[in-house]
Design a protein around this nucleic acid. Structure first.
Length: 222
DNA sequence: CACCAGGGTGGTT
DNA sequence: AACCACCATGGT
């Protein structure tokens, strides 16, 4: 099985740097909002929703808590699923304004912070790891559908790995935030342009590594 | 027109 | 544990 470091380097050579969320310290809440808004939505539309919220100065927990949910829903309508997303944003803002705070979350250990995020409405494993990585700059491996499909083609020996195995596989060779950041963005770029739902391995820089082409060790159990 | 986009939740088998 | 419907808009 190819290592995550080689996957990173190969995709970087093909697609170049992706420039995803260079998280400034005062943008943590904004990035958390973006991570919720972008779910099953093109980034362009999520970005428009964030700008609409920014125009109304709603990108702080306090301001969003005080806002009317109908106003929030109007701002984020273009990002889709606006009713559920508006409710989730209000819950997130209330939680960070009343029950906790960004600074308090910063003091938590990475595993603890992951559990904290997973307990919030609308934050599942992928969004939690994206927030850990892009907002809090913690070493986290974001496992998305593109990476699952990619791993399914690259792991020719064993069975297709589960999400937990995929996280371990990524972190085994990459533990620094900049490359984990870049890797997830590159996997998405690769999935959208070359090997998406229907693989086009003949055009892919990884074609020699794919199940249709070659040998490898595959993922090990446990 | 069908399909996709930086998923998660709740219910059923 | 795997599968499913649902959420909803904008772009191609």
């Amino acid at each position: 099985m190819i290592g995550s470091a080689e996957l990173h380097d190969t995709l970087l050579a093909v697609h170049g740097p992706q420039h995803w969320w260079p998280a400034a310290d005062d943008e943590v809440f904004e990035i958390m909002v973006g991570a919720l808004l972008v779910q099953r939505t093109a980034w362009h539309n999520a970005a428009g929703a964030i700008e609409a919220l920014r125009r109304r100065d709603l990108l702080t927990p306090a301001a969003l808590t005080a806002a009317d949910i109908a106003t929030v829903a109007t701002c984020i309508r273009g990002a889709g699923f606006f009713r559920s997303k508006a409710a989730r944003l209000m819950k997130l803002a209330r939680y960070l304004h009343r029950d906790a705070s960004i600074d308090e979350l910063r003091t938590q250990s990475t595993p603890g912070l992951r559990r904290t995020l997973l307990a919030l409405d609308g934050i599942g494993p992928e969004t939690a790891d994206a927030i850990l990585l892009y907002a809090f700059e913690r070493p986290a491996a974001v496992v998305d559908e593109y990476l699952r499909r990619l791993a399914g083609r690259l792991a020719n020996a064993g069975r297709t790995p589960g999400d937990g195995q995929l996280r371990e596989w990524v972190l085994a060779e990459i533990d620094d935030v900049p490359r984990l950041n870049e890797l997830h963005a590159l996997v998405v770029a690769h999935g959208k342009t070359v090997c998406g739902r229907r693989p086009r391995c003949e055009d892919c820089a990884l074609r020699r590594r794919c199940r249709t082409g070659r040998t490898g060790r595959g993922f090990s159990e446990a």
